[in-house]
Design a protein around this nucleic acid. Structure first.
Lengths: 129, 129
DNA sequence: GGAACATATGAGCAATCGTTCATATGAAAA
DNA sequence: TTTTCATATGAACGATTGCTCATATGTTCC
């Protein structure tokens, strides 16, 4: 534990001897960067988008409102699997739902999401990854 | 195995009895959706963005080029951990590197990435998640 | 050449994830 | 009220993830 701290300290001293590596610059950078809370939440958002099943669900909802069994049919996956994923999407406020009789209909909750996904798709289509 | 297929089949038949649930519509939707390959790659991209450490690295590089030990110092994490994450970012073509003496300097490889991250941050800042 | 430094990489391990299976909830139909 | 259909949820399991530790690679300075 203490050894680890000491090692890090040594490493920092060594590294700050580089011409452009003063402690001040590092501190400045930390200030310029988005707050760690914001970064964590953004990472959380991307993590939710970072699964093929959830991406399929979202792009399906991009077109129109769908109930759980629709999505289940469309993706050829079990109702339970879809339901679990929808809960994650709901918790991240990416989708909302409405009840109609026995069925529950899901739709996109936010316009930004479609934009972000479109941007991701474009990035992919332009040769990267 | 066969039972599972049968169950899915039954479920599909039941669900397609809803007024708007014809097999045709499902097929149309599948055609409209981005190809599953594209979706998988996009999910892969978001998965890489979906980790706080990697997000911190990328936002740090947003400002300027940095060598590994800079990033290591800035985030207060081990050189090895950073190096492993940089490999992922490299494989996804999100960062590129250049050697200068003993050090290796990393920078953003793509302009889209900054846009996507900015959009994610905006989504977060506007109350969601 | 060898020592010192900067980075990369492989194995290993705890933690997290995405699914399945069984079951619970809740609304409609009989 | 009982049955049936649509969805939700908890436990459990294998797969993946992100780190650490030890070590390898590659560069510079002596």
């Amino acid at each position: 534990m203490e050894e680890k701290m000491k090692l890090l300290q040594e490493q920092e001293e060594l590294c700050t001897e580089h011409p452009h590596h003063s402690g001040l610059i590092l501190e400045e950078m930390q200030e310029k960067m988005p707050s760690s809370v914001e970064l964590e939440r953004t990472a959380e958002l991307f993590k939710v988008l970072g699964d093929p099943t959830r991406m399929q669900i979202l792009t399906a909802l991009f077109t129109q409102e769908l109930c759980v069994c629709d999505i289940s049919d469309l993706l050829g996956m079990s109702q339970s699997a879809i339901s679990h994923q929808l809960r994650l999407l709901r918790n991240s406020r990416l989708v909302k739902n409405r009840r109609e009789g026995k069925s529950i209909y899901y739709s996109l909750d936010d316009t930004h999401v479609a934009t972000i996904i479109a941007q991701g798709l474009e990035h992919i289509r332009h040769g990267n990854l």
